[in-house]
Computed example of a mutant assay.
Amino acid sequence: MGTIIKRRRKNGTIAWLAQISVMRQGKVLLRESQTFERRSTAAAWIENREESLARPGALDALKTQPKSKKTPTLSDAIDRYVQESIKQIGRTKTQVLKSIKTFDIADQHCDAITSADIVEFAQEKLNSGVQPQTVSNYLSHLGAVFSIARPAWGFPLNAQAMEDARKVADKLGITGKSRERDRRPTLDELDQLMQHFLDRSRRRPTSIPMHRIIAFAIFSTRRQEEIVRIRWKDLDVEGKRILVRDMKNPGEKIGNDVWCDLQEQALAIIEAMPLIEDEIFPYSTDAISAAFTRACKLLEIEGLHFHDLRHDGVSRLFELGLNIPYVAANSGHRSWTSLKRYTHLRQTGDKYADWTWLAEVTKRDNALKLVRNGQFPRKRRSDRGV
């Protein structure tokens, strides 16, 4: 006989653990278990499994089967995927996969996971308070494990089950596409941020020059993680361009090195930076993100993300009357389709034509003086400017 056990998850939701044990002469021949979202589903699984095992010869077949290695769980597959990925899979993907291991589906054996189990996991994730687009990201990252587990390691994960689950989750509204953000910083908000960080830089000369990084993000249209990776040796001053290594794209990221044009303002900001390390902006994304978020909270600037600076920079180029190929050469968009969201913008002139902060972020005297005085150590990372 099977048993059903009520379990309370870490997030407070209820799950039902269905268990089956088959014994002969005091020895356990078979022990199976699966977790379900509903008690009725757990009861149906027990009934179907017991009916299957009751068929003539079913138990004898199990008894005579040669002993094999333990069937790996989804958690085992995730661990192996992370450990054996030669190419860098990224911090976000690693964190998502680590998070999935805290759900019940991670404890299931690979050969027992069905599309229904994946849909239940997606529903559970949605019930935890995240948006459908976040659930989509979770299934996307998990799908990468499903796609290679069988051919790479012989783990019996059914890639088709993942594809079926994605279709069902999409139809039920459990997953969804990310909404395009239209938030752009106002000149008043930028004035507040720039003044805040300039004051901090004067108080603490070795802190991250966030006022320069903010301006560079706008005029270069670079992402945060790209800004901290660009190096002096990748700067082509005469050609007014920079080599952006491992640029993000929907396909291959690692090794996707792209030359991007630089606006004069972005180049001037680079030339104002001190030559202290191989990177032009030798700081961590964590430090930049923390400083920006903290400043917005302090200044009561709501709903502004650092990535919105890139969106503002791309929008500015279209407002200058530039065409899609020219903008793509600056932004690095491989597909022009991604830039169609900006086609509604009309030529309105340069929002930053009279921006007084340009003179401040392109000044060289302060930075060069600090270098001469030895106030910039060779190694300063996330412990600076946070």
Rank of each mutant, 00 (worst) to 15 (best):
Q83C: 05
Q83D: 12
Q83L: 12
E84Q: 13
S85M: 05
S85T: 05
S85A: 14
S85R: 04
S85W: 02
I86C: 00
K87D: 00
Q88P: 02
Q88L: 14
Q88I: 10
I89W: 05
G90N: 09
G90H: 06
R91V: 15
R91T: 13
T92W: 10
T92P: 02
K93S: 09
T94H: 15
T94D: 10
T94W: 11
Q95I: 13
Q95V: 11
Q95D: 14
V96Y: 12
V96I: 15
L97N: 02
K98I: 09
K98E: 15
K98F: 10
S99L: 14
S99N: 15
S99Q: 15
S99V: 08
I100T: 04
I100G: 01
K101V: 04
K101G: 03
K101F: 03
K101A: 01
T102A: 15
T102F: 10
T102R: 14
T102P: 00
F103S: 02
F103M: 06
F103P: 01
F103W: 12
D104T: 13
D104G: 11
I105C: 04
I105K: 01
I105Y: 04
A106R: 02
A106Q: 00
A106L: 04
A106K: 02
D107H: 10
D107C: 07
D107Q: 11
Q108W: 06
Q108G: 04
H109Q: 13
C110I: 01
C110N: 02
C110H: 02
D111G: 04
D111C: 08
D111Y: 03
I113H: 03
I113S: 00
I113K: 02
T114S: 15
S115I: 05
S115A: 15
S115R: 06
A116L: 14
A116S: 13
A116N: 10
D117Y: 03
D117W: 04
I118C: 02
E120N: 05
E120S: 11
F121T: 01
F121N: 01
F121M: 06
A122Y: 03
A122Q: 02
A122I: 08
Q123T: 08
Q123C: 05
Q123A: 12
Q123I: 07
E124D: 11
E124I: 11
E124H: 12
E124N: 13
K125S: 04
K125E: 08
K125T: 02
K125M: 13
K125P: 04
L126M: 08
L126Y: 03
N127M: 11
N127L: 12
N127I: 10
N127W: 10
S128W: 04
S128Y: 07
G129P: 05
G129V: 09
G129W: 07
V130E: 07
Q131M: 13
Q131S: 13
Q131V: 15
P132T: 09
P132S: 08
P132W: 06
P132L: 10
P132C: 08
P132H: 04
Q133D: 14
T134R: 06
T134D: 05
